[in-house]
Simulated scan of single mutants.
Amino acid sequence: MRNARTILIVAMAAWCAIASPVAARTVSATFALIEPGDRGTISYRITAPTIGRRLPILLFSHGAGYSGDDYAPLVRYWADHGFIVVQPTHLDSRKLNLAADDARRASVWRSRGDDLVAALDRWPDLVRQSPAMLRNADPTHVVAAGHSFGGHSVALLAGMTVRGAEPLGDRRIRGVLLLSPPGGFDGLAADWQARAPYLDADWSAMRVPALTIIGARDRSAMSPRDATWHADAYRRAAGGNSCLVTLADAGHFLGGVGGQPLTLGTDPADPAAVAIVQGASLAFLRAAVTGVRFRPRRFAHATTECR
């Protein structure tokens, strides 16, 4: 019996060590939910601490074309510091190879938000797939984060609306982290206004705490404006508990938050910038979960402001 117990303990330790490179303090696994209608199966990558109780849930929405398997520098960091990170792979991911004529493409912006909400609505179904991994989650403490198009997706949950569409705001969300999000519709190039009417957004009803982080060198092909276009969500929201961090030398991927192979020729790797994003985001997410007012610290090569 003693030998059997020893074998079991060793096997579990080996599984945890393989599952997570962060000193065996986190574990990752893929989960699935089958949704009614034409959405079909939603795949979620969930990364969770192996210790702790009443752990908050962090929903993370990837940028256009990427997947729930990306953004390791952020996901591992957040999980290592006590968050259960839930990453859906949205329909626009290149991994799903959605056909160009697929009718669902027109509503991908909406289905992205639905993917995030489904994880909360059906949390018990996810827990049943791995009780040992998720039993310590606290679904009453939820925050959300997203990069690029993912920033648009999580802002929907925080109360941002799209002209002519039903709101998708969710009161369970205690705060949102917006990384290089798209800016205002009036700042889009004319061709993009025609291609992306879902970016006609109004942030005035977004009243939950929000932290926006942008790169000062992030010049988007979607807009003739400079990098400040990405700060519109901060400047046009209701305010009261919102902050903006601008990284002086960073581009759209903020020094490499997407991890490999998410690299751009105009956005060189910058570990110092990634460290700022990690530290500022963690402090904000912790404050949002606990209801404490957030104030970012000062960083070298970055500016901060709040309203």
Rank of each mutant, 00 (worst) to 15 (best):
P131K: 05
V86Y: 08
I57S: 05
S93T: 12
A19G: 15
Q193L: 11
D202Y: 05
L177Y: 02
V292N: 11
G113E: 11
F83H: 12
R2Q: 14
L134A: 08
L168A: 15
R207Y: 05
P197D: 04
M1V: 12
F83W: 05
R39M: 04
W109I: 03
D92F: 04
L58K: 01
G279D: 15
Y234A: 01
A79D: 11
L157N: 11
A145W: 02
I9D: 02
L157C: 07
R54T: 10
T6L: 15
A145R: 04
R128W: 00
D121N: 06
A287G: 10
A132H: 09
R53V: 12
S153G: 09
D125H: 11
P73K: 05
Y71R: 13
S28K: 07
I173T: 10
T161W: 07
A4W: 06
R195M: 12
A100Q: 15
I213E: 05
W15T: 15
V162A: 13
V127P: 10
D38N: 03
L247Y: 13
T212H: 10
N241K: 09
V75F: 08
C306S: 06
F299T: 13
Y198M: 08
V274G: 03
V142A: 11
L179N: 06
Y71E: 00
T47L: 07
P73H: 02
D125T: 02
R219P: 02
T228S: 13
G65Y: 06
A72V: 02
D114G: 07
R76C: 08
A231K: 10
N3G: 01
A4S: 09
I214D: 14
P36Q: 04
F284V: 02
Y198D: 07
W229N: 06
I84K: 01
V208R: 15
S204C: 04
R174Y: 04
G215T: 01
A280I: 00
G169A: 15
P268S: 03
Q260H: 14
T30Y: 13
L8G: 05
D267G: 06
P209A: 10
L134F: 05
A165G: 01
A106T: 03
L58Y: 06
R171E: 14
A48F: 02
F185K: 09
G215A: 07
R76Y: 14
F253P: 10
K95T: 14
L96E: 04
A237Q: 14
V108T: 10
C306P: 09
G259W: 01
I46W: 14
A19D: 08
D202M: 08
I84C: 07
G251D: 11
L168D: 13
I34N: 13
L156M: 15
R207N: 13
G164C: 09
H301T: 14
A29G: 12
T303W: 01
N241Q: 06
A145H: 00
A100W: 02
G183P: 08
A273L: 01
G251K: 12
P56R: 10
F284L: 12
L285F: 12
